[in-house]
Design a protein around this nucleic acid. Structure first.
Lengths: 256, 256
DNA sequence: CGGGAAGTTGAAGAGCGTCAAAAGTAGTGG
DNA sequence: CCACTACTTTTGACGCTCTTCAACTTCCCG
């Protein structure tokens, strides 16, 4: 997966213990955060950031490692600074629904009760900021603009979730894949990357579990789109979109 | 639909104009609100409630009437005080996904940008509190505990949305219907009603559009559950659950 | 290189959708 | 009060999309 070569991060070794007691954020903290504008730290000023830096712990996990599991006591909230994660829920018999893919700037771990409602796992080497729940709550109390920002981000997540329900409940396999590619493309743009060669850090199984399909159907649909000239499959798990307008029409069922 | 005989509400007549300029909340306002404990007004004290009363407008809409449509400028936030509503999204060709059913205590209209992300329509005669967006923001600034409560409610909505994604993406028709009935039952309890005879104010089509099924499949699955002795279909669109534990196992794919 | 996982392709089957018609329910007016 | 109409729900027959099971191919990483 050359498109996700964050091996600098892996180099910490796979021996990182599950309890994630990584060293506290060292050298240049929040002030230099490259994704601050995307996070709930965005509305804070320089002086206030120092308070954040005091309670945040920076940590790094290798590809494939879980961050927390559904049902675990929700002691922390996280913000992704680099890499890619998936969050998912399981049924007793093992059926899985990936409820979201997270990239730099996204947060996870907000729980309305005492335990996490889903599991989270890194798909590539990933860096995160970790906030103790009570410390963060203290911070929110002192900086209402941060709480407002968080509410705003939660509202956005809700709108995204509703789009995903429409996709899962009413779209065909082709429409699902088209929507999925467009979503990734737009998020790349939001992070300041180019829209077009789309990087896919997740497996076909993950994509299937995100779209309510099987790996086989995902694979077949990619092939169909390729044959139709809508996309090209590049090396390193990347996809080139020929005509994003056409793909957008496909995604809404106005297939050409 | 005798189970939803709120004809006192209809009695205002079907002539209520679409712009919803109902009279302002009169006589006994927020202090006497029967569902306050469920809403974002819950953490406010008597004195603070007076401020809410100043900016809120109480309105009532008859069954079948839209409250707002997807894409409309989001000028208001609403809180349901009595009745039942559905919110949904549409694809260009008319396919519909109902993203939620709302009952007393639920809020709707939170938009992260300038327009509503979904349409909302009353299923029975429904009363709501309407808040101007900017007025509400002013209130949130003055009462941070209200903003915290809203964030808490949004987190809860997010968790519910993720459950629904699991349902839509990975559950069978039978599991979907079982989950749906249990959800309605639990929400009745939360509102202080009895858990068991479950009221269904929505049509089979609405249920299908909520669960990612067709009306026919919804109807067939109800029949199956009835034949299996899991439920009984009562008059007035109500359902009696024989054994909620059994239904819960069905809902999670641990079908007996 | 070589072994194992991930991805692709094929054939057959199941679950749910589609189309169609019957049965039930509600509202209206004589 | 009952008949008439219109809509919703239920039931049936059939078909299609996606799944399942299986084999083959490609891609990594040691």
């Amino acid at each position: 997966m050359s498109a996700f070569d964050v091996s600098r991060i892996h180099d910490l070794g796979a021996a990182i213990p599950r309890d994630l007691n990584a060293r506290t954020s060292s050298g240049a903290p929040c002030g230099a955060c490259p994704v601050r504008g995307l996070t709930f730290c965005a509305p804070l000023e320089e002086r206030e950031l120092a308070e954040v830096a005091r309670i945040v712990k920076h940590l790094t996990i290798p590809a494939g490692q879980p961050l927390f599991d559904e049902g675990e006591p929700a002691r922390h909230v996280f913000s992704v600074t680099e890499g890619a994660m998936k969050v998912y829920k399981l049924l007793p018999d093992g059926r899985r629904q990936v409820t979201g893919f997270l990239f730099s700037g996204d947060f996870l771990g907000l729980a309305h009760n005492e335990s996490y409602a889903y599991s989270a796992e890194a798909m590539v080497g990933t860096s995160l900021c970790r906030f103790g729940r009570s410390e963060l709550e203290g911070l929110l109390e002192r900086f209402p603009q941060m709480e407002r920002r968080l509410l705003h981000m939660a509202s956005h997540e809700l709108a995204v979730a509703q789009d995903q329900m429409l996709l899962l409940g009413r779209k065909t396999a082709k429409e699902k894949i088209a929507s999925f590619l467009l979503m990734l493309s737009r998020r790349q743009e939001l992070r300041g990357q180019s829209a077009n060669p789309i990087a896919l850090p997740m497996s076909r199984t993950d994509i299937g579990d995100y779209l309510g399909l099987t790996t086989e159907t995902v694979s077949r649909t990619f092939t169909q789109l390729k044959t139709a000239g809508e996309i090209a499959l590049l090396s390193g798990n990347r996809v080139e979109v020929a005509d994003s307008g056409g793909l957008a029409r496909l995604a809404e069922g106005e297939g050409l």
